[in-house]
Computed example of a mutant assay.
Amino acid sequence: MSFEAKTNGAGSLQKWGGAAALYEALAYIIGIVGFIAVVNISEVADPLQKVTAMAANQGLLTLLYLLVYVIWGASLVVLTLALHERLQGDVSALARTATAFGIIWSVLVIASGMIYNVGMGTVVELSAHNPEQAATVWLAIESVFNGLGGGVEVVGGIWVLLLSVAGLRNGGLPRLLNYLGFVVGAAGVATVVPALGETGAMTFGLTQIVWFVWLGIAMLRRPAGLALHSAPGEVAVHPAPAR
């Protein structure tokens, strides 16, 4: 493969990564509007009433969890691989560690969304015959969902923190974006503390919308922001750090 083909391929992945980052932000906004303004069943405390609410809104909830969890997680895989390339993960142990956490987070989010949708379908069907048993089953499913990532954002927080450190070290990401990443990451890690869970999750979600948009624009505008590997006999080109 020629040097030009390699660099074109790298630029293509960066653009796909930028588009994925923008989708992540869009999905957050869809989730905020959908889960709070349109169909907010998280505030329903009684399990029986929650199952009834899910049955009444099953189609919309299924779509929301597909967009905000399953497709979001799949897009995160693309973004993670693009950032691995951009931050020179082949030579940076820190970037490779960030990639690992990004993939882990992707799997957790996808699994959370699938468990919610499949579990909801089972519970709604069961509720037609035995509402009390359906409510009990849902409590178990919801606990698994929350444990995988429905309520704790520590894995995502660690991912953003690692990316921010790696970005500062090699200049592959805008400096101010990396500083914002420290705020986002710290908020995500804070969700592991029960007393800080709600505040941390809110801060993490809102600040990460800005972080994803900024990251996506940076990757689309500077698709060759990563260090380019030279062909044999050529000098490698290392662009100046993004601002």
Rank of each mutant, 00 (worst) to 15 (best):
G121P: 04
A95W: 05
A37H: 07
F101Q: 03
L94D: 10
A128D: 01
L22H: 02
V38Q: 07
H238L: 14
A95I: 08
L226M: 14
T203D: 11
A140I: 15
R221A: 14
G156V: 04
W214M: 10
V193I: 14
L48K: 11
V68F: 11
A186I: 12
V160L: 07
M54A: 05
G197Q: 13
E153H: 15
L196T: 03
Q88G: 02
R221V: 14
G121I: 04
T7V: 14
L26A: 12
M1K: 10
E153R: 15
L163T: 00
G17P: 06
S164D: 00
W72M: 10
H238V: 15
A95E: 02
G11R: 11
P194H: 07
S143P: 00
L63V: 14
I209S: 07
M120Q: 10
M1P: 05
I30N: 02
I209Y: 08
H129M: 13
A128P: 00
G18D: 01
S42M: 15
E4R: 11
T52F: 05
V154F: 12
R169A: 08
A25R: 05
A135R: 03
L66H: 06
L87D: 00
G172E: 01
A128I: 09
A37F: 14
I209Q: 06
H238D: 15
G151T: 15
V123L: 04
G9V: 01
I217M: 11
A95Q: 08
A242F: 11
L215W: 04
A37Y: 12
Q14E: 13
G156N: 02
V155G: 03
L60I: 13
R96W: 08
I110K: 03
A227F: 14
